[in-house]
Amino acid sequence: MVRHTIEKAAEIIFSLCAFMAVAAVFSITLYMIANGLPAIFQAGWKEILFSSVWQPTAQEPSFGILYVILTSIVGTFLAVLLGVPVGLLTAVFLAETAPDSLAAVIRPAVELLAGIPSVIYGVLGMLILNPFLYRLEQKLFAGSQTHQFTGGANLLSAVIVLAVMILPTVISISETALRAVPPELKACSLALGASPVTTVFRVTIPAARSGILAAVVLGVGRAVGEAMAISLVSGNSVNLPLPFQSVRFLTTAIVSEMGYAGGLHRQVLFTIGLILFVFIMMINGILSSILKGERLE
């Protein structure tokens, strides 16, 4: 009898543990909506989403976050554009062309890159990348009257840091996908007289496309959600996302102002959080539909 009670209790406790994840996602969603929506009603969704004037502490405050949203979209897009080709080629190297001895050097490096705290990427971006880009900026805009110099803390810096940060994700998932391609397919291509390199680009990569797509989507998720590293390198003022402009992302807006914001200003920061959350949920949805499709294949 006692034993039966213990068995029953164990099962109940374990199922409660399992529902923890459900409860967490449910309450995060609930809290993000509950805290993010009020500002939209109060300030008006047009004022927030489609205005580009961000003056939260002015006498007549204005909470337009259009540029912030655009920065996150453009910055993520560019980071993926830069990081995915490099990541995919590295994955090809690890899965296909590398001799074992070289792969044994590169693979641990990729794993370690994934483990480095994001703040450290920000630190290095700030102290190495920013000065470098500043020199470039001085050359490019020499004599310009209108350009506001950023000291290298601009969209381009943030994009490069993000591209580096998504590399490990893109590499490891693409590599897994490439390895899953049946060796017979490659043999068929080689038997037709295609070279190994041609085979990789014409057969192996297309055959692994859904896995590679998943890698890209995950990379997008990483880039959209990254906060601390880019808050150190992006300059942090609200501007149209152009390469040599100081910019503010959805994430860095929260990081840089949550500390002191109050009232409606604070609520608008939660609205920014909600928008970020919606982006992430969309990305998650796309990802699981890709993975589902893959399983069906």
Partner: peptide, 12 residues
């Protein structure tokens, strides 16, 4: 040319 045991069309 070569034809293999398992029919292996490319995924295209």
């Amino acid at each position: 040319g070569m034809v293999f045991q398992q029919p292996n069309p490319f995924p295209m």
